[in-house]
């Protein structure tokens, strides 16, 4: 099993009780040498691992991911490097790449699929690619059984949530806030009604992310979704030399 099927299966059959845990890290951050070790460590508890391809203009990201992306680019992390590195990785935990569209476009979609299959990548999240613009790349990914994980947000109207859910494979990414990644205002209770709508619209698992920082956030979201994505808070923990798995364990109920 691989690709979108493996992602769906991993979110539905979690390693530990509770929601699926989907950590996000920026590739090659804080340093290139520890990249594979970090993934191997995360794979012990994570149900899916999301790896950020650093981009020069991360317009959907807050200060933390901007900082990690900038540092990674400075140290020479590129999509090519990530694909090369991942080839040597051996894990059963599905790997998803989060990338803005331009690096993928420049790489070439057909070549990308080929390299992704070689590198053991199971799917993609592309934050600046709305469904209207994604037809070509979806087709290429679908053919190769790679997941194209689409995002919905609290700004998305209900009928649009339905349409997006139909186009998503692997899982559906429910952004919990109107905003960029890494917010620290805390999640509002209003998110519940929205998540119920998303969950009802989707035939595949729903994972919630953006601004998840604490055990309380996880407890708030847990009843309504199948998985939780933790990005900026994890990157900040890593910056403070907290072991990634220890940090993820503090979020579990």
């Amino acid at each position: 099993m691989f690709g979108s099927e493996l992602i769906t299966n991993s979110v539905e059959n979690t390693k530990q009780s509770g929601p699926a845990i989907v950590p996000f890290i920026t590739a090659g951050y804080p340093d290139k040498d520890s990249f594979l070790d970090l993934i191997t460590a995360l794979a012990k508890t994570a149900d899916v691992i999301e790896i950020g391809v650093p981009f020069s203009d991360p317009m959907a990201d807050g200060v933390t991911i901007q900082r990690s992306s900038h540092a990674a680019i400075e140290s020479g992390v590129t999509l090519k490097w990530i694909l090369e590195e991942l080839k040597t990785l051996n894990t059963k935990t599905p790997i998803v790449l989060m990338s803005y569209l331009n690096p993928l476009y420049v790489y070439g979609y057909d070549q990308l699929v080929e390299a992704s299959l070689e590198a053991g990548i199971d799917g993609f999240i592309i934050p600046d690619l709305p469904i209207e613009e994604g037809e070509e790349i979806r087709e290429v990914f679908n053919k190769a059984k790679l997941a194209m994980i689409q995002l919905v947000t609290p700004a998305t109207p209900e009928n649009r949530i339905n349409t997006i859910a139909k186009h998503s494979t692997g899982f559906l990414y429910a952004v919990t806030v109107k905003g960029v990644t890494g917010g620290n205002e805390g999640l509002s209770k209003e998110v519940v009604g929205y998540l119920e709508t998303v969950k009802a619209s989707s035939n595949i698992p729903v994972c919630a992310g953006f601004g998840v920082r604490s055990k309380a956030d996880v407890e708030l979201l847990e009843p309504y979704v199948d998985g939780i994505i933790i990005g900026s808070a994890l990157v900040e923990a890593i910056e403070q030399k907290i072991t990634a798995t220890d940090f993820l364990n503090t979020l579990r109920a």
Binding site: A60, P127, D128, E132, E133, Q150, A155, P157, K178
Partner: peptide
Amino acid sequence: GGQYAPETLMPA
């Protein structure tokens, strides 16, 4: 051209 925007902005 086109509309390569984050989903949050698509309705707007």
